[in-house]
């Protein structure tokens, strides 16, 4: 009990001097996670659509080559960003850009750098899951769209993606929650998020455990709220499940009543 009241006391002390910095950190974390998840989904959807453009023997060889190239490039992108830690990607890109260009190019803002890195990371995951989502939609839907003359792009935007998106909604929420937590690694390039606030506060006061407690409670509250919100949105987007029953169908008839027109029996 003693330890517990000490913890409460320390947390109070921390909050007194660093409360604002924690709160600012929370808002940065949320904004980064939201923006990066949105951009990442966009990247994922674009990759998914490009990845599924059908290659036909009748296409011009240049077009076929280009389509194959696109698939290879996307494959490489996905494998690299899915296969390396985000914390390293951040360091690699943030310090690599000025290194390679002799300081001609550098990230002017830590925000921009963080958004780009988290977005392309999310995009790599989403690209694969969107591709899966597209493949999971009944091929008959694509055939139906093709048969009325829709192009690949029209088929995707009007018919396939809305259905794939519906299947992918939990996945997008999942990615958002992962991003809320995983943006904490962006402290490595100096992004002022919730976790960075802990490093500053704990570094100055040496109250590591009380600060970590604040962080644990904070992150957990964020993700819990996010998943409740996502569930609510999912329900909303599914729409009304009831509909009006219509009894007036002029053509419904009983079994085997296809009526032959009059003709002479032989």
């Amino acid at each position: 009990m003693d330890k517990f009241s000490k913890l409460i006391f320390d947390i109070g002390k921390l909050w007194e001097s660093y409360g604002n910095s924690y709160l600012r950190g929370i808002s940065s974390t949320l904004i980064l996670a939201l923006v990066a998840t949105a951009i990442g989904c966009l990247i994922g959807f674009v990759c998914g659509v490009l990845n599924t453009i059908p290659i036909s023997q009748n296409d011009h060889p240049v077009k076929r080559f280009f389509l194959r190239l696109v698939r290879v490039v996307i494959r490489i992108y996905v494998e690299i960003f899915r296969g390396t830690p985000m914390v390293l990607q951040a360091v690699f890109l943030y310090y690599g850009l000025p290194y390679i260009t002799d300081n001609a190019l550098r990230f002017s803002s830590i925000w921009l750098a963080s958004i780009i890195i988290v977005s392309i990371n999310t995009g790599a995951y989403m690209a694969e899951s969107v591709r899966g989502g597209i493949l999971s939609v009944d091929p008959g839907q694509t055939e139906g769209a093709k048969a009325v003359g829709m192009s690949h792009f029209q088929t995707m935007t009007a018919v396939i993606l809305p259905q794939a998106l519906r299947n992918k909604k939990p996945q997008i929420g999942n990615n958002f929650i992962i991003n809320v937590k995983d943006t904490s690694v962006m402290f490595i390039i100096g992004f002022p998020d919730f976790f960075a606030a802990h490093r500053a506060a704990a570094g100055a006061t040496f109250l590591y455990f009380p600060s970590a407690t604040i962080e644990m409670v904070g992150y957990f509250t964020l993700t819990l709220a996010a998943s409740a919100l996502l569930r609510f949105l999912e329900k909303k987007m599914d729409g009304d499940s009831s509909y009006e029953l219509v009894a007036a169908d002029p053509l419904v008839m009983a079994a085997g009543t296809y009526s032959r027109p009059e003709r002479s029996e032989k």
Binding site: Q141, K146, V148, G149, V159, P162
Partner: peptide
């Protein structure tokens, strides 16, 4: 090929109506 397909209608064994649209939208989108 898309223009040609729009001139040649197809009715499938498995209907292939667009599941994300209403009956009316199915007939309008094309």
């Amino acid at each position: 090929i898309n223009e040609y397909r729009s001139r040649v209608g197809m009715v499938f064994q498995s209907f292939n109506l667009f599941n994300n649209m209403t009956v009316l939208e199915n007939c309008m989108v094309g």
